[in-house]
């Protein structure tokens, strides 16, 4: 299992690296595909550490905070531009997204209280919405490296992502958990 995970992570990482020019040629695939893929590598690699009981990470708060700041940094248009113009920043991107976003997110999420998870999900949706608003309404070009039309496209992509994420998270709530239905069918049999 661990081997498979490392392999997948490696594969995704080399994909991001090998098709760098393709991903970075427009902001939609750069911000909404390449960056999340890199973070995903970190999450995959962190799996073995997920069940580690660590006192400093009670409730996953510390790990989630690290991830939150990491995400904030990579949401700055300035960081995106810098990754394109400075090789050092590009290297930092390939290292920090797995290590400072993906891995802590996975480790923190596993420990997080359901209420905290719900709150973070709501927060994620609203941040995606705010990004959509900012990118579709900005009176100026936000990234020097990308065209205005692409900026607009990125705004709409944020919006669609927000909608997709809502559907993904809300749809399962309609049917209830498997435990509930098992319990119910058992009680019906018993009764």
């Amino acid at each position: 299992m661990i081997g498979a995970r490392i392999l997948t992570a490696g594969l995704i990482f080399s994909l991001c690296l090998g098709f760098r020019d393709f991903f970075e040629s427009n902001p939609v695939s750069h911000v909404l595909i390449q960056l999340p893929l890199l973070a995903w590598c970190g999450a995959l690699l962190a799996q073995p550490a997920i069940n580690l009981e660590a006192e400093w990470n009670r409730g996953g708060v510390v790990a989630l905070l690290i991830a939150l700041f990491g995400i904030t940094f990579w949401m700055l248009p300035r960081s995106i531009d810098a990754a394109l113009f400075s090789p050092a920043m590009e290297v930092a991107k390939f290292i920090s997204l797995p290590l400072c976003v993906g891995a802590p997110l996975a480790i923190g999420w596993a420990r997080a209280h359901p209420l905290l998870r719900g709150f973070l999900k709501a927060q994620a949706v609203s941040m995606l919405g705010v990004m959509a608003f900012l990118y579709t309404h900005a009176p100026v070009r936000i990234c020097n490296a990308y065209l205005v039309d692409d900026q607009l496209r990125l705004g709409y992509a944020f919006l669609f992502t927000a909608i997709a994420v809502v559907v993904l998270w809300v749809a399962p709530l309609f049917v209830g958990s498997r435990e509930f239905h098992q319990m119910r069918s058992r009680s019906v049999e018993a009764g």
Binding site: L115, G118, F119, G176, F180
Partner: peptide, 21 residues
């Protein structure tokens, strides 16, 4: 309010078999 509803919503969903239930 968001926190409040998250708590109410998740407890009801768990106890009554989803939103539909």
């Amino acid at each position: 309010f968001l926190l409040y509803y998250l708590e109410v919503g998740r407890k009801l969903i768990v106890a009554y078999g989803g939103i539909g239930g």
